[in-house]
């Protein structure tokens, strides 16, 4: 009886008097990948925070595996990996110690070996014994990515995963996301502009005025909004991810 990993229904969120999300509908099946784009301050981070359970909806529902994300039970949270715009890394611990710490929290088996593999993979093996406080922003982002993916989550929430990454880092991040999708992880991510993803199926949605709308990006990276101009305005169900099974199993 497996539940849809990510399902948002009529999700609304306001901070104080300011509404950020109006009515977001989204469903991501295992192996589905949704990329959310939009202007600065349109609420991408808020949306991802709410999916991750860091923030509580003001209206509607944000469900992970059929349970409300903000009060997901401890063991269920093992199945969710989150990369926020904050790295969640301790500046006074080394790269390895940070990974081992989070590995222990997430019940990763053979934590030392797993941390070693990830450091190697992220190209951080040489600095594994350096404190994170000495890292550049890009190195920190690589480590934060490893931290989010360490426990092989079934849901991956990535807020601007490519920010601060150099070309090599971006290639690495893309490969990791592709692998995760191939292992049937449901991925929700946001990017600043055109996502540098390729080689697998993903769906780009645009967050505008508090709702998600289907968006297609042209080659120049400008967003050619297909939905809004062709009469799909309002609360569009932009959530069905192409090609993947969305049937919630009864």
């Amino acid at each position: 009886m497996s539940q849809v990993p990510v399902r948002l229904r009529g999700l609304a969120k306001s901070y104080g008097l300011k509404p950020v999300l109006r009515s977001v509908e989204l469903e991501i099946a295992p192996g589905g990948c949704v990329v959310i784009v939009g202007d600065n301050g349109c609420g991408k981070s808020t949306l991802l925070r709410t999916i991750a359970g860091l923030s509580r909806p003001s209206g509607g529902e944000a469900l992970l595996f059929g349970e409300e994300a903000w009060r997901l039970a401890g063991p269920m949270r093992q199945r969710v990996g989150v990369l926020s715009h904050q790295s969640f890394l301790y500046p006074n611990l080394t790269a390895r110690e940070n990974l081992e710490f989070y590995g222990r929290l997430y019940g990763v088996p053979k934590v030392g070996a797993a941390a070693g593999r990830w450091l190697e993979r992220m190209g951080l093996a040489a600095v594994s014994r350096a404190r994170v406080g000495t890292f550049s922003r890009g190195m920190e982002q690589r480590l934060a990515l490893a931290r989010a993916m360490l426990a092989a989550p079934e849901v991956l929430v990535l807020d601007e995963p490519f920010s601060a990454l150099d070309g090599e880092g971006t290639t690495l991040a893309v490969a990791l996301i592709k692998e995760a999708v191939a292992q049937r992880t449901a991925v929700a991510m946001s990017t600043h502009g055109r996502p540098p993803l390729s080689g697998f199926e993903f769906k780009t949605l645009r967050l505008v005025a508090g709702v998600l709308k289907p968006a297609a990006l042209d080659e120049a990276g400008r967003e050619a909004v297909t939905g809004a101009r062709t009469g799909l305005a309002g609360s569009v169900d932009g959530g069905t991810v192409g090609g993947f099974a969305q049937r919630p199993e009864a």
């Binding site: 401890g74 063991p75 949270r77 989150v82 926020s84 890394l89 301790y90 929290l105 931290r147």
Partner: peptide, 15 residues
């Protein structure tokens, strides 16, 4: 509070 670590703990499997 540095780097939002408390948030990292709050959404970790540790209750």
């Amino acid at each position: 509070g540095e780097n939002g670590c408390l948030r990292g703990l709050v959404i970790s499997p540790v209750d």
